[in-house]
């Protein structure tokens, strides 16, 4: 199938530091693609490139064959790119429903609608849609509560709901399971599997390989800004380079390392025995 997203020869440097190095990634339309790699691999940087926070030093990003490199941050959402953040960026002084409705902003359009009361007739359809998404993500009972002070798991789901109501073509989920306990994580996998629309292409950054295996049909592994493996999640997660990137490898110097020197006490004991 035709790729929705094509990162072609992407390089990003900060001063002398190369963060992404000549990277090629293709994401098919409607697929669930996992992006894995150890800390500092460049996963979130790719999200920041896609959402317009950073601009690539070299290479180009194509969305549905259209280059998007020159599109500024606040116009990327108009292209149908929605995202969540690794470090939650909820509006703490807004309620859960208001936070979710903020995600509809690009669809609302006209100033007349922007200046219509949120609780009024003009916004009823938008409110109902936000409520529907909130319900799908298990947030029905929290919609009236302020985002500030809610549990981390709930806040993560609000971010996902806020991204989903924007009806994105490409949804970027940045470590959705990070910081969750195992039961919250399992719950989130179930909720995501059932709530992600089939026509939405999803790119997921995640450390939890189990999470990626369950949700994704394709996986790309990165290390130091380079692609080290690509394919189906099971084979990528077991790929020797991926295992090495996460866990390291045995160094020969340690295998042939000399025996540690005897302690003073042991040396005395040996001398005594010899005597």
């Amino acid at each position: 199938m035709k790729p929705l997203l094509f990162l072609h020869g992407i390089t990003l440097t900060f001063g002398g530091l190369s963060v992404i190095d000549n990277l090629d990634i293709q994401v098919r339309k409607g697929s669930r693609c996992g992006l894995i790699g150890p800390n500092g691999a460049g996963k979130t940087t790719i999200f920041n490139l896609l959402s317009g926070v950073y601009r690539a030093t070299a290479g180009e990003i194509l969305l549905d064959d259209e280059p998007i490199d020159d599109v500024p941050l606040d116009r990327r959402i108009d292209l149908g790119i929605g995202r969540t953040f690794q470090n939650l960026r909820l509006m703490k002084h807004l309620t859960v429903l208001e936070n979710i409705m903020l995600g509809q902003h690009r669809l609302v359009g006209s100033w007349a609608r922007i200046l219509a009361p949120l609780g009024g007739r003009w916004n009823r359809a938008w409110r109902d849609e936000a409520m529907e998404v909130a319900e799908t993500l298990g947030l029905r009972d929290d919609v009236d509560r302020l985002a500030q002070g809610l549990s981390y798991g709930v806040q993560k789901r609000i971010e996902i709901a806020r991204a989903l109501v924007g009806r994105p073509r490409l949804l970027l989920l940045d470590e959705p399971a990070a910081g969750l306990n195992s039961s919250e994580r399992e719950e989130l996998v179930t909720v995501l599997a059932s709530s992600l629309p089939r026509d939405t292409t999803v790119l997921i950054v995640e450390h939890d390989t189990g999470f990626v295996r369950t949700l994704c049909d394709h996986t790309v592994a990165l290390n130091f800004g380079r692609k080290i493996a690509e394919g189906d999640p099971a084979s990528v997660c077991g790929h020797p380079l991926v295992v090495e990137a996460y866990l390291g490898k045995d160094e020969p110097i340690y295998r042939n390392r000399p025996q540690p020197a005897l302690s003073n006490e042991a040396a005395f004991q040996r001398n005594d025995n010899a005597a």
């Binding site: 941050l73 959402i77 509006m91 002084h93």
Partner: peptide, 29 residues
């Protein structure tokens, strides 16, 4: 009170909370 009850009011609060984060949703900060 009316302005605060609208999407414009929502955008004002969002900009105060996190301007850059708000721009990601297409709000012209």
């Amino acid at each position: 009170v009316w302005l605060s009850s609208t999407r414009f009011g929502l955008c004002m609060t969002a900009v105060r909370n996190d301007g850059r984060g708000t721009a990601v949703f297409g709000v012209k900060v």
